[in-house]
Nucleic acid binder design. Structure first.
Lengths: 231, 231
DNA sequence: TATTTTTGTGTTGTTAATACGCAATGTTAT
DNA sequence: ATAACATTGCGTATTAACAACACAAAAATA
């Protein structure tokens, strides 16, 4: 490494940032941390930090998330790399942004601890964000809205077992528009990726509904056969 | 910058790589350069190189492309960032990969010059590639196949004026399957994004066909109205 | 016991996708 | 010249997907 550093004296630093979403009661929230040091001290920012020399990018994201927020992520994918020369006042810092989803259990635990430094913000009630994190977050929201229509990532935001109405409510929330409950159910059931359980659950008033469970195995089989998930 | 370097001594170098595609006569080709120095000296690789401290990532890609291959790119978008610790034998090098398209005019010029160091290879007749560039290229091909079905990027691979059969042939080539000529034409004409010109052109034998031209302005208007391009 | 709320299962009309047929217009072979 | 061939251009019938809507079933609540 010193070999290449001798030839190539490149003063660029590399970070990772994570836009992690959670869902509860008709609200999509994003995980933010309050910055302890300058620049943007005291402002809210996406969790993240410098990449270590001996770790892969995903490992860096998972480590920073755990260190800064205590969150163990269950879904993570690369979003985009932000490398504009002026995006960090300290100098040239390039950031590889990731897109993550957590289940309600993780969401609740995080919401209960560290309220001072770590918090979930509904995406429509965001504070001012440090750096270009608002830009990153905008792209992450679009990724969520886009991807949820052609890949079954919505289940990553729900408990393992969930009533069908929860899934429907999630989709209306993310997509920001009403969807016909009956046609939606037809689409999902035709895909045969949900197992209906014997358990029923009551949502306060109204008829109790069955609990469902996403069958990932079945999804992969159907994908191989060319059957595509689409909402 | 020295301030942050003093605190953060991060030995990671940043490069850009470009997977640039061209099209002619039913073949999708990718632009490769022969490496002059170790590692992988003499092997073929994607054009690219180290990012300079005072340039944005896109600027770095465009500069490297021009320097190494003489190609001025007309379509460029970010593909993915590759950051595995072992991807470069020299040490930790993270690469932001880009995806590019050039028109036949550019394609022909490049094919004529620098044949020793720079060449176009059909994607189904690739040589052994340096680093993890085969992985990058695989993703780039998938991006091309995916994106051509829901955004009108195919026109970036054709001349400004083209017979309809060229567009059809391009799609069969990229997607790797036959498409019904009549239904395909119906879809495209319904979108109203092509202007039919008075000029006709003969392809050797057979009935001469009209030349068409992509109307980008019209496409943006239709996009605003919610009409989506889909093949 | 009636009302309200939520779940579950249909049906119907409309639109888009698919699978073809065939004429029109040129070149090439005889 | 004329028949054979290749390619373009336009059309229709069938099929599958989508969207809009009605109503019954099962619970809580008044």
């Amino acid at each position: 490494m010193l070999l290449i550093r001798n030839v190539m004296n490149q003063n660029i630093l590399l970070t990772v940032d994570a836009a992690v979403f959670g869902y509860e009661h008709g609200h999509i929230s994003v995980l933010l941390v309050k910055r302890k040091y300058a620049p943007f001290k005291g402002e809210w920012a996406l969790p993240g930090g410098f990449v270590l020399e001996n770790e892969n990018l995903e490992e860096a994201v998972e480590r920073e998330l755990l260190e800064e927020t205590g969150v163990k992520i269950n879904y993570l994918e690369q979003l985009y790399t932000y490398g504009d020369t002026m995006r960090d006042p300290r100098g040239r810092v390039v950031s590889v942004a990731y897109f993550g989803l957590v289940k309600p259990t993780v969401f609740k635990i995080t919401a209960a601890t560290d309220a001072e430094q770590v918090a979930w913000f509904p995406v429509n009630k965001l504070p001012k964000l440090a750096f270009d994190h608002k830009t990153i977050l905008n792209m992450a929201v679009k990724r969520l809205q886009g991807k949820i229509t052609y890949e079954p990532i919505g289940f990553e935001l729900l408990d393992k077992k969930f009533p069908f109405s929860d899934l429907e409510k999630l989709y209306t929330t993310v997509l920001g528009r009403e969807i016909d409950r009956r046609n939606f159910k037809k689409k999902i059931t035709n895909l045969k990726i949900l197992d209906e359980l014997d358990e029923k659950v009551s949502n306060g008033r109204g008829r109790p509904g069955s609990l469902f469970q996403f069958n990932e195995q079945r999804y992969f089989e159907l994908k191989k056969e060319g059957i595509i998930f689409e909402i």
